[in-house]
Amino acid sequence: MDRKNVLYIAVSLDGMIAREDGSVDWLDEFEGEGDNGYSEFYQTVDTVILGRSTYEHIKILTPVFPYQDKTCYVFTETPDSYHDKHVTFIDEDIKAFTGRLKQQKGLNIWIAGGAELVNTFMKEDAIDEYIITVIPVVLGSGIPLFHEQNTETKLRLTDMKRFGQAAQLHYKRA
C-alpha cells in the first residue's frame, strides 16, 4: 500500500474548524453516531502531523497526549524550544519531509491540523486525500479550514457517510 497524506478533520457548515479562541466545544454538542468514524480512520494511520498551535491546544484539552501509539511530528519554527517524549518537533520543508515519510513502509499519514498547517500543505500540493466531516452548525466566525489565498485544487468525491446529523465527505485529488 502506498502511503498517503490524509487530511481528516471536522468543520462547521460555514467552514470553520474552531471558534476565534480555538475552542471546539461545538463538536460535542451535535447529534453524532458512535465516534463518527474516528476509530475506523485512526486504524488507517501510523503517523500524525500537527501544527504547533494545534499541539499546544491538545496539551491544554487532554491530560494524556492522545497519539502516544503513533509516530507524531509537530511543525514549528522553534523545534528546540519544545520537549515531549511522544513527539518529534521539526522545522523542515513539508514536501521534502513528507516525501521521505511516504517512501518508508507504513500506513497513511494523518494531517491533523490546524488551519495554518493545512494551508501550508495545500500550497505545497501535499495532501492526497481529504476526509472532512461537516457538522450541522453555522458558527458565523472562527478559524476557517481553508484560506482565501489557496490555489485552486480540484478534488473527486470518492465516498460519503452519514454519522447521525454529520456528513463525512471523502475526496481525492482529481
Rank of each mutant, 00 (worst) to 15 (best):
K4E: 06
N5E: 10
N5R: 07
Y8V: 07
S12F: 01
M16N: 09
I17H: 14
D21A: 05
D21L: 02
V24A: 06
D25T: 03
W26Q: 09
E33V: 02
D35I: 00
G37T: 04
E40R: 11
T44Q: 10
T47A: 05
V48P: 12
V48A: 01
L50W: 12
T54Q: 08
T54L: 09
Y55N: 14
Y55T: 13
H57V: 15
I58A: 14
P66K: 01
C72M: 12
Y73N: 13
Y73L: 13
Y73G: 15
P79N: 12
D80V: 03
H83G: 09
D84M: 04
D84K: 10
K85H: 04
H86P: 09
T88D: 14
F89D: 11
F89V: 09
E92G: 06
A96P: 02
A96Y: 11
G99Q: 08
W110I: 10
I111Q: 06
G114H: 11
A115C: 13
E116F: 09
N119H: 02
A126V: 04
D128I: 00
Y130Q: 12
Y130A: 03
I132D: 06
P136T: 11
V137G: 06
G140R: 10
G140W: 04
G142Q: 00
P144G: 06
F146R: 05
E148T: 12
Q149L: 07
T158Q: 07
R162E: 11
G164A: 12
G164K: 13
Y171H: 05
Y171E: 06
K172P: 06
